[in-house]
């Protein structure tokens, strides 16, 4: 029976080839805008403002593409980093661009502290929702889910007014603390649902035997259940970290001081300052997105876990 079998096999082989080809095509589409951004970021001003625009700055008067004639430049990055010689700094250069000096460190701080807080609070309440049946259990879970239906911009109206009033009346009010607290509130509801799912997947027997051995409920939670749930909790941390890193409108409306602006806010400022310096914009985009893309490439399995769990729950 070699005839039909080989026919079947070759059909399969063709199918695989077709699927591969189609997927390569799709991947090219997915990365195309990013690739163009990279090429734009390495162009010099004269090539940016050329008419008609060219994809690669590699043309000569008589040829459209000549590898050796490429005029790659790092002008865009230079203007974002704004390096100045400084004897005390590492490598002898200090980066004085606002984006790298102030905005990205701010974002780093907002993202990591929000993610830490959300993970901590969500793990406590997710544990309680998963392990205990109490009055109002389901109602509270549903209420937390319903809260995710409040549009972010709706709440921003009130939170903006709140921030104005608090700034006026509280002497110790700090934009940064308020912003982080707001991020807690925005990313907690969905995180609680996801962590509950993670805890549900951990068998209770281990914990119960610890309780019988005389371990306190809190001890059992911290010593037994939490370590087991760690991979899930890390995925919550990463998800919140990325969400806060990428968040724009909340910070845009709540932060008033230049020193406290996060990177996305800084990028939006850049947009209005560099209408024709496309290479500067492209470089800024890449510098802000790069840490997140690298983080994603190294931790994608963890990401997918939280994503799927979150999507199925909500």
């Amino acid at each position: 029976m070699s005839g039909p079998r080989s026919y079947y096999l070759s059909r399969r082989a063709w199918e695989t080839r077709f699927v591969n080809l189609a997927l390569i095509f799709v991947c090219l589409f997915a990365v195309f805008p990013i690739v163009t951004t990279i090429t734009i970021s390495f162009k010099e001003q004269a090539d940016i403002t050329r008419k008609p625009p060219i994809f690669f700055p590699c043309d000569t008067p008589d040829k459209t593409f000549e590898w050796s004639a490429c005029r790659w430049a790092v002008e865009g990055y230079q203007r974002v980093f704004a390096p100045k010689p400084d004897e005390n700094a590492l490598l002898g250069w200090a980066l004085t661009g606002n984006l790298v000096k102030t905005y990205i460190p701010n974002t780093m701080m907002y993202a990591s502290s929000s993610a830490l807080g959300v993970t901590l609070l969500a793990s406590l309440s997710g544990f309680a929702f998963s392990r205990y049946r109490f009055r109002g259990h389901n109602a509270l879970m549903t209420a937390i889910y319903a809260v995710t239906g409040i549009p972010l911009i709706t709440n921003m109206l009130a939170l903006y007014q709140m921030s104005i009033i608090l700034r006026k009346n509280l002497p110790f009010f700090d934009d940064r603390l308020f912003l982080i607290f707001v991020y807690f509130g925005f990313y907690l509801p969905i995180s609680v649902w996801i962590t509950k799912g993670f805890f549900d997947a951990i068998p209770r027997e281990l914990e119960e035997s610890a309780l019988i051995e005389g371990c306190s409920p809190l001890g059992a939670m911290f010593r037994i259940t939490m370590p087991l749930a760690m991979p899930g909790l890390i995925s919550i941390f990463l998800l919140t970290f990325v969400n806060v890193w990428n968040e724009f409108i909340v910070a845009y409306l709540l932060v008033t001081k230049n020193d406290f602006k996060p990177a996305m806010f800084g990028l939006y400022d850049f947009l209005s300052q560099n209408i024709i310096n496309l290479q500067v914009l492209a470089a800024a985009c890449l510098i802000i997105a790069a840490p997140i893309i690298i983080l994603f490439l190294f931790t994608r399995k963890t990401f997918f876990r939280a994503m799927v769990e979150g999507a199925v729950k909500g």
């Binding site: 990013i34 802000i288 997105a289």
Partner: peptide
């Protein structure tokens, strides 16, 4: 590779 767009901020 397909997932890279999702990780990029909407403003970017």
């Amino acid at each position: 590779i397909l997932f890279i767009p999702w990780i990029i901020a909407d403003i970017i």
